[in-house]
Design a protein around this nucleic acid. Structure first.
Lengths: 209, 209
DNA sequence: GTCTATAATTGGATAGAC
DNA sequence: GTCTATCCAATTATAGAC
């Protein structure tokens, strides 16, 4: 399977190709790789199967294109504009953004499919990691470093602290959602989870005195 | 799909049934549900396909039997004999046991397949959660509660603290392993991860003074 | 590029003999 | 229970007309 590193924006593709990619994305994210047939994708896109094959050489390439496109969409996490002086408020904002990102139905679906298919398509792991978790952690790491420099936090290793922050915020709700346990949209619960995580993080990293 | 709640021990099954179940486990854990054919399982078990169907009514039932058997094998986590007075040492022991459990190739394979197939087989999520993460967290929660009672830790909500401990220890290495990033057996790295997590946890929950 | 129709293969499941 | 041989449905992929 080949995963295009930079996908053309969808507008640059022909109308049919765009429709096929969108249909494939919906189908794959909902059903996984193996359970979705090219027939179903063609039907959902409103084209014939031959047209699908005119744009994507085979099922694997189509799948790769979908994963690349979806992964790209998760690069939008930013923490740069937050004020490291108001540390608790900023961390809670970051935690809430992070949770909103990883708990969205789309993100959950992507996680499921990548984890489930990485044995068959080993490339997926790296593609997803670099487009998703790695970028997010870098953003948070940068914020923590700034906070440490001005004395808002007592952090020795900013990279490790960012890892731990992310892990604390993710908590067990993410895995529970991946396993389809518990409700889907529970926004109140997410806010509570974010606050608990930040509280513990601050107990560990707040400057002494 | 039906997931038998208590599986008969394998010795109680006939030799062929045992071989089939073992072969199916190897195949499913290595390749996932969709990518493994009944032909392949029969071949690996050294029997004909008809014999497979004589013991398991269809592919789904065989899969359910595999998942139930594997899940049962993850109930062995215990922290009851550890001494809550030597809190740092005990927590490091727990962290190392936990990491050894969740980072084992078998555990990783089970995680992948359950997360990947939970959309197709919604039962899997609950079966796995209760047999795995839930049991482990309960054990750790009990230990933390004992430690809090004797003043080794300053914990308000033991359940939440256990969640956070588990999340900190799991860190990002677990997801990286799920995605097939990084080396497989890196024991030294696991020990470092365990220590970092415990260090942060203790900074947050060590009694003041 | 796009369609209809079809080839070629795979894979789940079964019939029937022993 | 076990095997060989087979059925049948689904699925990937392509041929050929327009």
């Amino acid at each position: 399977m080949s995963v295009p590193q930079r996908t053309e924006p969808r507008e640059a593709l022909g109308g049919k190709a765009e429709a096929i990619l969108a249909a494939a994305e919906r189908a794959f994210l909902a059903g996984g790789y193996g359970a979705v047939s090219m027939d179903a994708i063609a039907r959902e896109a409103g084209v014939s199967k031959a047209t699908v094959y005119a744009h994507f050489s085979d099922k694997e390439e189509l799948f790769g294109a979908v994963i690349a496109a979806v992964s790209e969409r998760f690069g939008g996490f930013s923490a740069l504009e937050l004020d490291p002086r108001d540390i608790e408020c900023s961390l809670i904002t970051i935690a809430n953004r992070f949770l909103a990102l990883i708990m969205s139905p789309e993100s959950i679906a992507v996680n499921r499919i990548i984890i489930g298919e990485v044995t068959r398509f080993p490339v997926l792991g790296a593609v997803f990691w670099e487009a998703g978790p790695e970028r997010v952690r870098t953003q948070i790491e940068t914020f923590l470093r700034r906070a440490a420099e001005i004395g808002s936090l007592a952090i020795d290793d900013a990279r490790l602290a960012a890892e731990q922050f992310v892990s604390l915020v993710r908590g067990e709700i993410h895995l529970r959602r991946l396993l389809r346990l518990g409700p889907e949209g529970d926004a109140a619960n997410l806010a509570v989870a974010a606050e608990s995580a930040v509280e513990t993080f601050l107990r560990a990293f707040r400057p002494a005195g």
